[in-house]
């Protein structure tokens, strides 16, 4: 027990960040489940984080109100953004959400209420580890349930073949907007928790490279099952610490090892780390390259 306490004292912050990153990765998984590549979830986390931070700092709101407020705000923005943007597909959707993310980041740099480039400071550190993992467990349970529900099957049918799904009467726009909005709300909640963990948030915390990290967690962990993104986020968040423990010096070498591990996972585990634990339907072999029109 004492060892456990000591372990927590040393690695507590890593454990917290694993939880936050896993929740963020899971939020992106809602959109990936329908085959939509969004790079906007870091921005949703930013909207949630800033909203919650402002509620706490300026309006002295209790934590639960701030967290829900941040999540709701991100959800509303996600709904408004989703309706026009989700007509786009593939890389174009990724680019549109990326542009949205940049606009949010630049807005955070330039507004007064967000504290500009220095960020919003003085947010009390009141998020506890159990809260993060409770939220993660609820989100994962929700995800697992959703996958087996009518909406879940609708999303999978959209991912496999959108035109065919539309012909079978799946309300594509509705399902897509629902998935996108849920993802935005989860991301906003995670961002709000992060804000109350870190004393301050800056626009850099929610930029392009964070959005890419979320995608990396999903692909490395596996997108097809609810625990995939959690596995990916846990491994990649802990990797720098693990490498340090193994004795790989900080700096370029550790960065390079990080990159090599990422490359190896992509090359040799097509369905991500989750494929080590479950037998998923293989997607590794392409039967015939789809012709482009």
């Amino acid at each position: 027990m004492e060892q456990l306490a000591q372990f927590y004292a040393v690695y507590g912050s890593v454990i917290n960040f694993i939880g936050i990153n896993a929740l963020l990765a899971l939020s992106l998984n809602f959109t990936l489940a329908a085959g939509m590549l969004s790079l906007g979830n870091a921005a949703f986390a930013g909207i949630g984080g800033y909203t919650a931070g402002i509620l706490t700092v300026h309006l002295k709101a209790p934590l639960i109100v701030s967290l829900c407020g941040g999540s709701l705000m991100a959800g509303v923005v996600g709904l408004l953004l989703g309706m026009p943007v989700l007509r786009l597909k593939g890389v174009f959707l990724a680019m549109a959400t990326l542009a949205f993310g940049e606009v949010v980041r630049i807005a955070a740099v330039n507004l007064d209420i967000t504290g500009g480039a220095e960020g919003l400071t003085g947010i009390p550190n009141i998020t506890r580890t159990w809260m993060i993992f409770l939220a993660l467990a609820l989100a994962a349970y929700f995800m697992a349930t959703l996958r087996r529900s009518r909406i879940g099957w609708g999303l999978i049918s959209i991912r496999e073949d959108e035109t065919a799904a539309a012909c079978l009467g799946v309300d594509i726009t509705y399902y897509k907007v629902v998935a996108f909005t849920i993802g935005a709300m989860v991301a906003g909640f995670a961002g709000a928790m992060y804000a109350h963990l870190n004393y301050l948030i800056t626009p850099r915390d929610f930029g392009f490279f964070i959005a890419v990290d979320l995608l990396v967690y999903n692909i490395v962990g596996g997108t097809r099952i609810w625990y995939g993104p959690i596995l990916g986020a846990a491994l990649l968040t802990a990797l720098p610490e693990i490498l340090r423990g193994v004795g790989v010096a900080a700096g370029p070498v550790r960065l390079a090892v990080n990159g090599v591990i990422l490359l190896l996972v992509i090359l040799f585990l097509p369905n991500g780390l989750a494929s080590l634990f479950t037998r998923l339907r293989p997607v590794a072999v392409k039967t015939g390259r789809a012709e482009r029109t």
Partner: peptide, 13 residues
């Protein structure tokens, strides 16, 4: 996309 990110990390290193 991801494997090119991995290469980018290796090149950055």
């Amino acid at each position: 996309l991801i494997s090119s990110i991995a290469m980018a990390i290796i090149f950055d290193a």
